[in-house]
Design a protein around this nucleic acid. Sequence first.
DNA 1: ACCTCAGCTGACCGACCGTTCAGTTTTGTC
DNA 2: GACAAAACTGAACGGTCGGTCAGCTGAGGT
Lengths: 225, 225
Amino acid sequence: MKLLLVEDDRKIAVGVKRGLEAEGFTVDVAFDGLDGLWLATEGSYDLIVLDIMLPGRNGYQICGDLRKADDWTPILMLTAKDGDLDEAEALDTGADDYLTKPFSFVVLTARVRALLRRAAGQEPDPLTAGDLRIDPGQRRVWRGSDEVSLTARQFDVLEFLMRRAGQVLSKGEILDGVWSYDFDGDPNIVEVYIRRLRTRIDEPFDRRSIQTVRGAGYRLAVDGG
Amino acid sequence: MKLLLVEDDRKIAVGVKRGLEAEGFTVDVAFDGLDGLWLATEGSYDLIVLDIMLPGRNGYQICGDLRKADDWTPILMLTAKDGDLDEAEALDTGADDYLTKPFSFVVLTARVRALLRRAAGQEPDPLTAGDLRIDPGQRRVWRGSDEVSLTARQFDVLEFLMRRAGQVLSKGEILDGVWSYDFDGDPNIVEVYIRRLRTRIDEPFDRRSIQTVRGAGYRLAVDGG
DNA sequence: ACCTCAGCTGACCGACCGTTCAGTTTTGTC
DNA sequence: GACAAAACTGAACGGTCGGTCAGCTGAGGT
């Protein structure tokens, strides 16, 4: 799956690109509107993530240009909450969905997946790691045949870990992936959530699916512990 | 879509039947295990909702019997939380999903829909009433191009109304449909939620999609107000 | 015109969730 | 074995949500 990201804020662009690539997508980036339009018309993408505020040519215009040229690649627009450019307008100009800044990667990737799924008419796949199983569509979790109930945030963290099962993920990566990118609270929050997940999906079952890699981060065992 | 409901508790059986029929399903009911097994093997159903505690032959046995006879109709099992029969066993005997009593209709119908969808490999459809639009899969709501955020319960009530748009629904029906069937709090809760919905999806847009039918209940206008 | 009752509405309360914090335990190094 | 850094963990706090309640409003009947 090949995506185009048009975003002038370098920091966000790089972070989003990295995050999406970690999910298995191929991502090209354009930092301004003209480059974006050029790439969009030339390359063949499965989906375009498009910021509204852009130098060169803004998101609305690019979206309108593409639609006028009969290009119906799904477009996810990024809008600023306090901007004078209105998010309502996004859908009018032909965007398929929009997302208000600041957002977290899990939300972004969920939207991307939802759009691609809608375009392809597919079903979301359940994820498994050994006998640990989650259904992102229904947001439900099982350990073997026992269903486990998690809070929203706990589920987000677990889904993030499971999509990268076997990889060591630093606390920073988890924080960047699950929390909104403008979150600047105590990074200890990751440890707290790891603990809560362990008490729910590991300890009652005498397993240790979430492993600590000291100095590096955490790893979810691909075999579910 | 034709469903078979096997449930010995008359009260629950009738309520569930009525609820599912209101959703557009055709529902046959068996009050004991032997009848249930007979109907299941004879009739051709798209899905079976199966209580575990049953006179005659229990849910596990029926499920096992069907699977042994190479009948793979999706089965949703109903389990009692405090029962000595374990919900974990449900999936082992070949059930596709299970639901713990007490449950609410919205949860039941969501599970039924999820199973049927899984079996058919389809996408959930967005629902609309005029420019009011909800996406049950993503649990998101829009009025025109503006997205509206609702709490979980508010969404459940709105989805319930929208699936029956144009019909007058009594407070009792809404209560029975959205709240767990053992809820015995103040029925005024429905009025409170209607109010909360109005302040979010109607008043800011100067619309009146949720109409009061004095002495009878509420109706969601099919044209969205 | 008044009375009654269904419906409306704002305030309040307890529970739960996300987050913070401080104190403790574990791990690796010298 | 002593020390420092990293990770762990239980408690506490503030905000939000679901539900309760009591007083108000307005429609319909007499």
